[in-house]
C-alpha cells in the first residue's frame, strides 16, 4: 500500500515544486516572489518528510526543522526590508 502511495505523493509534491518555481520566475511583483520562496520552503519540508518515510530513517527531521526555521526568518527579513527599507533598525 505504502509502495504505491509514496511514488504518487512524490510526483504530486514535485509538480507543486515546479509550479511554485514558475510563480517565482514570472511573479509580477516582489511580494509574489517572496510568497513563492516561502512556499518552496514548505514544499521542501514536505519532500523531506516523504523521503524520511520512504527511506525509513528519522535523520531527515533535523533538516526539516532547519528549513522551517530558515524559511520563516528569510520571509520575515524580506518583508521587513520591503516595509521599512531596512532589516535591523
Amino acid at each position: 500500500m505504502l509502495s504505491i502511495a509514496i511514488p504518487i505523493a512524490f510526483a504530486l509534491v514535485g509538480t507543486a515544486f515546479t509550479l511554485t518555481l514558475w510563480r517565482l520566475l514570472i511573479g509580477p511583483s516582489v511580494p509574489d516572489r517572496i510568497l513563492a520562496l516561502d512556499t518552496l520552503a514548505v514544499n521542501a519540508i514536505a519532500l523531506l518528510v516523504l523521503f524520511g518515510i520512504a527511506q525509513d530513517s528519522a535523520v531527515y527531521f533535523e533538516a526539516a526543522i532547519l528549513i522551517a526555521l530558515m524559511g520563516f526568518v528569510g520571509t520575515v527579513a524580506l518583508c521587513k526590508y520591503l516595509l521599512r527599507g531596512d532589516i535591523i533598525e
Binding site: L2, A5, F10, L12, T20, P31, A36, V42, L50
Partner: peptide, 27 residues
C-alpha cells in the same frame, strides 16, 4: 492504510496550494 491515506491527502493539498499560487488572479 491509514498512513497511505494521510500521505496522499497531504501531497494532494500541497499540490492544490501550488496550483492556487499559479492560477489565482491577484496577490
Amino acid at each position: 492504510l491509514l498512513t497511505s491515506i494521510l500521505i496522499l491527502t497531504g501531497a494532494l493539498f500541497t499540490f492544490i496550494g501550488a496550483l492556487g499560487l499559479v492560477r489565482l488572479k491577484d496577490f
